[in-house]
Computed example of a mutant assay.
Amino acid sequence: MARADPPAAPERLDRTGLIQGLGAYALWGVLPLFFWLLSGVDAGEVVAMRVLWSLGLLAVVTLALRRAPALIAALRSRRAMALLAASSALISINWLVFIWAIQHHHVLESSLGYFLNPLVNVLLGVVLLRERLGWPQMVAVALAVAGVAVLAYGAGQGIWISLALAFSFGFYGLVRKVAPVGALEGLAIETAILTPFAAIYLVWLSGAAGLSFGAEPGVTATLIASGVITATPLLLFAGAARRLPYSTLGLLQYIAPTMGFISAITFFGEAMTAAHAICFALIWTGLAIVAIHGTITARRRRVTA
């Protein structure tokens, strides 16, 4: 009589990836408060400074960790460079829209964009990575679509901010997941690709409206610190994107928008309309369904094992 094979153990989430994902989203959650300190600075200058100071930090980290050989190998890969060029464009769009939204008192719309982003990730994971979509994810995506429709109808002026942030970062994470390059090397190359554009813009701005950098010690120090606050969560996120299923990564992402939502209605004092309330309620319901279903499924797998 043949012996039956033991039941397969359930898949375990990569613990390092989970910690990296949680750290990235927690840091992103405080970004509205950080960039509020730069509310009087041109949004383009903030993005350009983020790029330049991030490049300096990443160069030091790359040398300290002796990752130069891996960096050179990535530079020689045409596929890696093509994907990183695309991810560079996506993250620069995301940064610019996000900073502009904070400076123009659209923190609520920016938080909505990152609430939508987990569901965009689930959708991209299914459509492009062929990950399975269960009924909870289908319901969640349908509720998100309904919420966006309500907000577009009731208070549509800022909906473009939400959609731009959700899809730009969703595609950014997707590109970084499939790019054959490590987290540190990929981010360093992305930043290097953006550096010439950042430098050109700063030169132009210095001759037009003038730079805020160097005008006041506090503003200058904050602009320098923007490199650290930019590179650190992106490094964590890139590492998590390569270690976790894309749908799981998407579900972690509501940490940052929750923090942004709280700061929008408390610290920034933004008004929440009925359309906002309905939209957020629908999206939160969808996220809750997916999270509860995932928890129940994980427990059943452990019991079966």
Rank of each mutant, 00 (worst) to 15 (best):
P118K: 04
V141R: 09
M259V: 13
A89M: 15
A89N: 07
G294K: 10
A215T: 08
T62N: 09
W53V: 00
I159V: 14
T195D: 03
I278V: 14
P136N: 10
R242Y: 05
M49D: 02
R242W: 03
I289C: 11
Q103N: 12
I93Q: 14
W160V: 06
R300Q: 13
R50S: 00
L244W: 09
Y153T: 02
V303E: 12
V126M: 14
M272E: 01
R50V: 00
A192K: 01
C279Q: 02
L84S: 01
A68D: 03
T266Q: 15
L84V: 00
T230Q: 12
W284L: 15
T220W: 15
L13T: 11
P6L: 03
G269N: 11
L202A: 06
H105G: 07
L235F: 09
P217C: 01
V127L: 15
R78F: 05
Y172G: 04
I93W: 14
D5P: 03
A4N: 07
E270G: 04
L58C: 12
G21K: 14
I102Q: 10
A192F: 12
A48R: 10
L282G: 01
L75Q: 09
A231L: 09
A146R: 11
I159P: 07
A9Y: 04
G29Y: 10
L119E: 09
Y114D: 06
P245D: 04
E190N: 15
G286K: 10
P217W: 12
S92R: 01
